[in-house]
Amino acid sequence: MSELKQELKEKIIDILNLEDLSPSDINNNDALFGDGLGLDSIDALELIVMLDKDFGIQLTDPKQGKEIFKSISVLADYIAEHRKK
């Protein structure tokens, strides 16, 4: 599980061009959106594509992202349970 969390942090930094951050700057329970990391709805769409491309998880309603992308821990749990690749 901690491997998956590390992988997700690296992916998020890469996909969302968060150049000034390193994985160690992101805590597992930090909020990714809003006051935490400061991500927004465009980032959510980017992460939805990542779920599909890298883990075979397809979300049809962008609103679902709100719960799933709460934090690295929540996201990792969701992926572990639903992944198809």
């Binding site: 996909i15 465009i42 769409l45 980017e46 594509v49 599909d52 491309k53």
Partner: peptide
């Protein structure tokens, strides 16, 4: 497939 929105936006 697997297109992301940022560059389009």
């Amino acid at each position: 497939e697997f297109l992301t929105p940022t560059s389009f936006i």
